[in-house]
Simulated scan of single mutants.
Amino acid sequence: MKVIGPAFALVALLFASTGCGLFQSADSPQPPPPERTTLRVGVATPIDTAPLRIAAASGKFREAGLNVELVDLGTDDGVAKLTSGRVDVTFASDVSLFRAAAAGTALQLQGEAYTSGDNTIALVTLPGSDYREPTSKKSPKIAVDRTDDVGALTARSVLATAGVDPAKVRLQASPFSQMPEVLQSGGADAAVMVEPFITQAEKELGAQILADGSSGATLDFPASGYAATGAFAAANPRTLAAFRRVLTQAQLAAADPATVRDALPSFSDIDATTAALISLGSYPTTLSATRLQRVADLMHSSGQIPNRLDVQAMLPVENQP
Rank of each mutant, 00 (worst) to 15 (best):
K2T: 08
A12L: 15
A12C: 11
F15A: 07
A16E: 12
S17G: 14
G19F: 12
G21I: 10
S25G: 07
S28H: 14
P29A: 03
P34L: 10
P34G: 04
R36I: 02
T37A: 14
L39M: 10
R40N: 11
R40G: 09
A55S: 00
A55T: 00
A64S: 02
L66I: 03
L70D: 03
D72H: 13
G74N: 03
D76Y: 12
D77W: 10
A80P: 11
T83C: 03
V87C: 05
D88A: 13
T90M: 04
D94V: 05
V95N: 01
S96V: 07
F98D: 01
F98K: 00
R99S: 08
A100C: 06
A100G: 02
A102F: 10
G104L: 07
T105F: 08
A106E: 15
L109N: 02
G111L: 04
T120K: 01
T125C: 12
Y131P: 01
T135K: 13
S139Y: 05
K141L: 13
T147E: 04
D149Y: 06
G151L: 15
L153W: 11
T161K: 15
A167R: 07
A167S: 03
Q172E: 10
A173C: 05
P175V: 12
F176T: 14
S177W: 07
Q178R: 14
M179V: 08
E181H: 13
G186W: 05
A188M: 06
A191M: 02
M193F: 08
T199Y: 04
A201F: 05
E204I: 09
L205H: 10
G206V: 04
A207D: 06
G216H: 10
A217F: 08
T218F: 08
D220V: 13
A223Q: 14
S224P: 06
Y226V: 11
A227I: 02
A227G: 09
A228W: 00
T229H: 03
A231D: 14
A233Y: 04
A234L: 11
T239V: 13
T239I: 11
F243K: 02
F243M: 06
R245C: 03
A253S: 10
A258W: 14
T259N: 03
V260P: 03
D262S: 12
P265C: 09
F267L: 09
I270K: 01
D271T: 05
T273D: 15
L277H: 03
S279F: 01
P284V: 12
T285K: 09
T285E: 13
T286H: 14
T286S: 11
L287A: 13
A289E: 07
A289T: 10
L292K: 14
L298Q: 00
G303K: 11
I305V: 11
D310V: 09
V311Y: 02
A313W: 01
L315Q: 05
P316V: 00
P316S: 00
Q320W: 07
Q320M: 07
